[in-house]
Design a binder for these strands. Structure first.
Lengths: 248, 248
DNA sequence: AATATTTATGCGTAATTATGCAGTAACAAT
DNA sequence: ATTGTTACTGCATAATTACGCATAAATATT
């Protein structure tokens, strides 16, 4: 990881959240706190941020309120860290959209050398920051509220792919129905993703466990892994384990 | 391996991954680190990348690090306002990437009801803010440097389209060569855009008038409109008018 | 064709840079 | 005041780079 890359990463974190904690940067950047601190020093000297005890904050919004942009962010970070343990060099990986996936992208090891395929604009944009990965966007009509490509051409595009892994940001999952979602166009795309992947991983914060929406994406039997922020032996997860899912 | 070949290889790596490590290049290029470093020096002098300790990074990352303030923003706003006068309800419009295009998107009339097609991730994301328009993203492999989809599938995707208007954010234009650009993969996409549009509009800040890059996108005769921040009767624009372009 | 001249490349060594570690000082929160 | 965390200093180490030079290859000149 080059110094400038770390700087870019830090700057982006600041732009996104208006602050960073030094300790939080150590893992994704694979550097010691010393190095991070020196990075922050340099960025401060370049007038790009303001260093404070424990990290740094944005120059523009120093008085900023604690903006919890992302709902349940800390849980999603836990999920993200579990998710990246499944990744290996050389893999082809399908990614859906959603804030959990975004957290996962931010947690990607910078030296991972994989091919990522997505239909989600925010996911694609996030992946551009990754130094080594290749990014393929399966395009078509963009569904505005989901910010992803949907429709026949997108589904056809996915069908050209043979992926090793598929990560689904999951809105609703329960034992009887499996994964369910709200919009037909999204369902179509997710089904195609599931069909084209060797292994399917559901990322789901625990509060969405055992909930159900109108439309069915796929049964539990199509899934291989379930990742929540809970420990693997939590009672809520038992019935999923019984169905044959690997719980992380 | 010829020097030019090495340079081409290095440029491609930068485009794809936003960075290269000197050490990583030694094996594929069969050259010593010294040679690689000298290559990087030359490419830096030619303004094609930024050398850093350990390798080199893309200029665009460097730029986004230094100032997120758009270059020549006020000029681009003037251009954007002129550009939107060409738009009408029901049109199908191809958009390239670039900060001028982003300004144009911000200036779109909220009640415009048009279909926008693009290969640029930032452009697509900007368009999502627009309440009424439909957005279609022509996907494929993403060129990190330019944040846009490139390659055969993207070009094929464009060929399915019949657009009324095409807006090109233009890096270089002159009377003799027409529009020129730097990277082959971008050229391919822009050519396809031009070919599939009834009318083609070049958006170009005046300082990029009468400049030229290595690769040719299209001759002036393929263009219909030229929009700069200058008044239409400015002497710099005369020769373009003589060539039959409508100057806004 | 032979020779000179420029250009490109690789190697050894010295200098520079980047990073992590240990110990100590400063800070924040109870 | 006490305690745990974060920051700074100096130092050690490893990686990267620059420099001088020798050699090889390409190009120009006679």
């Amino acid at each position: 990881m080059l110094k400038k890359e770390r700087h870019a990463f830090i700057k982006r974190e600041i732009d996104l959240h208006n602050k960073v904690l030094s300790a939080d940067l150590c893992i994704p950047l694979k550097a010691s706190e010393d190095t991070i601190r020196r990075d922050l020093q340099e960025l401060e000297k370049a007038n790009l941020l303001t260093k404070v005890h424990g990290g740094a904050i944005s120059k523009s919004i120093q008085f900023s309120l604690e903006n919890q942009i992302f709902y349940s962010q800390s849980e999603k970070i836990v999920i993200a860290k579990k998710a990246i343990t499944l990744l290996q060099d050389g893999m082809t990986i399908l990614l859906s959209g959603g804030t959990t996936i975004i957290q996962m992208i931010k947690a990607l090891p910078p030296d991972l050398n994989a091919t990522f395929i997505t239909m989600s604009l925010p996911t694609a944009l996030g992946l551009l920051q990754h130094p080594k990965s290749e990014v393929i966007f399966v395009g078509n009509k963009i569904l505005k509220n989901a910010r992803m490509a949907v429709g026949a051409a997108a589904v056809d595009g996915i069908k050209q792919i043979n992926a090793d892994l598929c990560f689904l940001g999951t809105n609703s999952i329960n034992a009887a129905q499996g994964i369910t979602d709200l919009e037909w166009e999204i369902i179509e795309v997710k089904r195609a993703m599931v069909a084209q992947s060797k292994k399917v991983v559901s990322l789901c914060i625990s509060e969405k466990l055992n909930t159900v929406q109108k439309l069915k994406v796929c049964p539990l039997s199509d899934l291989d892994y379930l990742i929540t922020e809970l420990p693997g032996d939590h009672p809520l997860l038992m019935e999923y384990q019984m169905e044959g899912l690997t719980i992380l």
